[in-house]
Amino acid sequence: MDSRILEIFSCIKQCAITLQELLQCDDSGYLASTNASGDTQLAVDVRADRILEDALLKLACVGGVCSEEKSSALYKQKVDSSLVESTFLQLDSSQSLESSLLIAYDPLDGSSLFDSNLSVGSIFGIYNGAFSASALVAAAYIVYGPRLEVVLACERVEHCVYSGGQWRSKGALQLESKGKLNAPGGTQKHWSKEHKELVESLFAKGYRLRYSGGMVPDLHQILCKKGGLFSYPATSDAPNGKLRKLFEVFPFAFIYERAGGEAINGRERLLSLSCDGLHDSTPCFLGSTEEIAQVRAIYMNKER
């Protein structure tokens, strides 16, 4: 594995310990501010964002970062290593650093669950030279739950748990061709007729509902249980979906594909989609191959 990716993975593991300690605090209050997507921020969102930004930008191999909590990317300049904000998706020639990587991250996914003490997480996409799906070279996420866990994906998907003051590997995560779990997101009254048909057909086949409202814990459970479907469709109130490509969708699509599953927007492979802005969103379906085949059958028929 590329030594730069190993260095970033090591940094993510260390940040996971720091953030787990941060989440033991009692501060679950909302701030007056909103993030770049219009979501009201928790104090812990802002603190988690700063911890990750500071740690990742200290790495020599990282040329820039963008966060779900901020409207612009933050790049290192070539000459003096100072920082510059930019809304561009790609480093220009004056900013590019040899052997540098870019990281897009969601510092605290599912933070609205924090005050009810449900599992939350952090998500990371590691990009080579540009914030685009074609440049994604690795991905990772952290689960802050009863146990502190990290999943790291490059050639394979490695599952690690923090226990007794050290990280240990639980082995590789691999999806089977068919699962038993169904995690459908979005408000039901805003679902399309086709999506209601999909969800109802899965329940009719005996799938179990597993949806917490957090992308990390729900997708992690499907991976650990070896199969199922996570969906966040286009809805009447969010026609482009709600989940952001760079921070959430692309990293998990990369992870699911490496684990033997598939990830689509209903018709197209998620990692084939373009990205025109840092906070672009998309409908997404991630799961085992048989479940994704069912999604395609319904959504391709919708287009006819």
Rank of each mutant, 00 (worst) to 15 (best):
N117W: 11
E291F: 02
Y162I: 03
L52K: 03
N35R: 05
F247V: 13
S86L: 07
F254M: 02
E149L: 04
I8S: 01
A263M: 10
E68K: 02
L243C: 08
R267E: 14
V62S: 00
Q174A: 07
Q77I: 00
V151H: 07
V79A: 13
V249E: 09
K78M: 10
A48V: 04
I264Q: 00
I142W: 01
Y30R: 12
A55F: 03
P184L: 13
A297D: 08
E248H: 10
T87K: 09
L108M: 11
M300E: 12
F252L: 13
S134A: 08
S272V: 14
R296E: 02
L101M: 03
D45M: 09
K180V: 04
C160K: 04
K302W: 00
Y256C: 05
K242T: 06
L136E: 05
P146E: 13
F203N: 14
K226F: 03
M215L: 15
L173P: 03
L219F: 00
G266A: 11
K58L: 02
T40A: 12
P233M: 06
S116G: 05
V150Q: 00
C11N: 01
I17Q: 13
S10T: 08
E68G: 12
P107I: 06
A104R: 06
N182Y: 02
D115W: 12
A259S: 10
G38A: 06
R4L: 14
D26R: 15
V137Y: 00
H195N: 08
P239D: 07
I5H: 07
S86C: 06
Q20T: 01
I5K: 09
C224N: 11
F250S: 09
E68S: 11
R267V: 05
A16L: 15
M215Q: 15
L31G: 07
V161N: 01
S10F: 01
I5T: 03
L148P: 15
V157A: 03
I5R: 08
S96E: 08
K225A: 09
E290N: 09
L181Q: 03
G165F: 00
E21F: 15
P217R: 04
